[in-house]
Design a protein around this nucleic acid. Sequence first.
DNA 1: CGAAAGGTTGAGTTCCGTCAAGTGTGGTGG
DNA 2: CCACCACACTTGACGGAACTCAACCTTTCG
Lengths: 229, 229
Amino acid sequence: MTGLACDSCPVRDRAACASLAPEERAELERIGRHRSFKRGETIFAAGDNDPMCATLIAGALKIASYDADGVERILALVHPAGFVGEMFAPVAHHHIVALTDSKLCCFSRKDYERAISAFPALAGALLRRSAEDLHQSRALIDLMGRRSADARVAGLLMAFARAASDSPCHPAQRFDLPLTRGEMAGLLGLTIETVSRQLGKLEADGLIRRAGSRGIEIANAARLEAITR
Amino acid sequence: MTGLACDSCPVRDRAACASLAPEERAELERIGRHRSFKRGETIFAAGDNDPMCATLIAGALKIASYDADGVERILALVHPAGFVGEMFAPVAHHHIVALTDSKLCCFSRKDYERAISAFPALAGALLRRSAEDLHQSRALIDLMGRRSADARVAGLLMAFARAASDSPCHPAQRFDLPLTRGEMAGLLGLTIETVSRQLGKLEADGLIRRAGSRGIEIANAARLEAITR
DNA sequence: CGAAAGGTTGAGTTCCGTCAAGTGTGGTGG
DNA sequence: CCACCACACTTGACGGAACTCAACCTTTCG
């Protein structure tokens, strides 16, 4: 709920606004504001008709829908520098919830639309982000289309390992799961129990080692990758 | 392989180029060319490094990946006025194949990139298309996340019914399946046999009627919708 | 300390994938 | 015109994988 300070923003050169000239960014800074959310808080709810959009500065979000039984289905994860919010639909389609304590840089849609038409570079940057999001979505579809639970869980672990790595090509060998079992299940279309059992089996087979309930160490990346198909 | 004729183009006011002023469109017309593909032909293959992009004029496409066993996984369907091709990645990520005989309006990526920076309206229009694609992807993720095969098949039928309808709100009551059983299976992460059995069961339960292998008539939309969750 | 939330494990059952055989149907060529 | 073939689709039997239900363990937090 504070003013902005783009100069010290941790995502200042990765987010969409990074493409702007200094004076353009000053204008964005004028119309946006920082907000913080605690783990589990809902940022936008499906059906909201007071549309907002935002860049994630720190933390992590999930985009999710809930069926009639209240079962959560996770449609996408959002990482820092990611952009969320409906720019074109009249109402929000999905729930956006903080996975961890998070900071966002929020804009009213009307203001942001004006900024897009005023600053052509912004449209280009958003297009690039959107293409990236689309690619991530399709990667998830690919993952969920696998028919066996072990392929899905192994694929998710490899995806996390890649995301946790600094170098874009080599996956991290050791990382913490960013999701609960229930969230992993919601992402993969499985149940909590199945995810838990598959992790146990991967450990028993010597493909991974576990430290606590969240820590993962990849013991045999090649075999883990091989299960993935 | 012919020149363009935007004036008579069937998607002239729905595709991305619709946002352009006449003289801008004339420039696009100069750098693009029409190509036709037969059902089953590959338009772009994953790994292509001679990147192209295109607007679909007529027909239908699938974006797909293939696992080590050759099992096809369909990541997205593309309808007329849709845009395909990687604008940002160095190589194509997925295969793009014609589902039916199709016509495309193709551009080299380099040319199209130039057009985007020259004509800001084009970036906006592509952003809108991209947001739509992203929404479709998430709808598919939602569908695939359903745990039972009947919910997935019923949901797919409802999606086709909505797509086949002229009016955006009410689903068509009668339509032809645009996909083979194998393609439906690849889209939903099921097997051909399971899709076939679920269709049989939906018919036996009186929720749908079938005419030939492709014709579908929705007999009880409410109950079909209810299964969907 | 107790409660709540996340996680694991076990037993039983249902569902879906696999394998296999069989039924159209459209297309090609004799 | 018909024989043949390829392809899409259907149907059945079977077994294994994943879901359900339930109990229990662990960690965190008030």
